[in-house]
């Protein structure tokens, strides 16, 4: 077991509001972790602290054995340069895709390798082709983002993150902005990545996906990990009342198995 990511005592407050309250988490290479919880529980903030889109108020984050930041007198300071370097090693996919509208699909995917990693033109192109192929959109390479469906845009955003060949991938509600019929293609792409051994930390409301794909499910409430374990124990046999209530809310209206033959 190789530990890729270690989070210790992570705190985050915005002014008086405490959003994360002592998160500890260890993620092994190849593990898929799904984070669930009500809105406001801190799950997105936790994800955003991992690649320092938000700067933690306290605690320590260690990626592949190297602790991020310089600790002195009980607080940790971060240099912009270190954080920029760290973000290049961590992939992130956003709820709203955030593709670069002035670039073609292929240019979007090449941008990181080209501008940040300073790869050669040949290498940039090779990576773009490879990862666009992986998300099934090689044929859209020369389109502009505005010409794609939401699901396709999100798959391009995944390819853009993969092109950096990151050590871990973060998904922040990657399907929440999509029309229901487009959710499946993005989740399938994510599942393929998980099956190939990518280390992933996923915030989602798709409990069925969590059940199928996660190695471990975390339930967050009030900035704390309230319950965690394999999907069966957290999603099917929850122990905490808060987890039960959350799942009850999600299961209020449910289809019996539709007959799709």
């Amino acid at each position: 077991m190789v530990e890729i990511l270690k989070i210790e005592g992570l705190n985050k407050s915005f002014g008086d509001l405490t959003v994360l309250d002592g998160i500890d988490l260890s993620v092994n290479k190849g593990e898929t972790i799904v984070v669930i919880g009500a809105s406001g529980s801190g799950k997105s903030t936790m994800l955003r602290c991992v690649n320092f889109m938000e700067i933690p108020s306290g605690g320590r984050i260690t990626l592949n054995g190297s602790a991020i930041g310089t600790a002195s007198n009980g607080s940790v300071t971060y240099s912009e340069k270190e954080l920029t370097g760290l973000r290049a090693r961590v992939g992130m996919v956003f709820q709203h895709f955030n593709l670069f509208p002035h670039m073609t699909v292929k240019q979007n995917v090449m941008e990181g390798p080209k501008t940040v990693l300073k790869c050669s033109a040949v290498e940039c192109s090779r990576r773009a082709d490879k990862y666009l192929e992986k998300v099934g959109l090689g044929w859209k390479a020369d389109s502009f983002p505005s010409q794609l469906s939401g699901g396709q845009q999100q798959r391009v955003a995944i390819a853009r993150a993969l092109a950096m060949e990151p050590e871990i991938m973060l998904f922040d509600e990657a399907t929440s902005a999509l029309d229901p019929e487009l959710v499946g293609e993005v989740l399938l792409t994510m599942k393929e990545l998980a099956d190939e051994g990518m280390t992933m930390l996923i915030v989602t409301h798709e409990l069925g996906f969590a059940y199928t794909v996660a190695d471990r499910v975390l339930f967050l409430a009030n900035g704390k990990i309230l319950e965690q374990g394999d999907p069966e124990s957290v999603l099917i046999n929850p122990q905490q009342d808060a987890t039960k209530n959350f799942l009850r809310g999600h299961g209020s209206f449910r289809l019996p198995e539709p007959n799709l033959d």
Partner: peptide, 20 residues
């Protein structure tokens, strides 16, 4: 979101401004 996306692939502020 454009700033965030640029930041997330490791661009600093200058690169984000210039490229994105």
């Amino acid at each position: 979101g454009q700033w965030e996306a640029a930041k997330a692939i490791g661009m600093d502020r200058n690169a984000s401004l210039r490229r994105i």
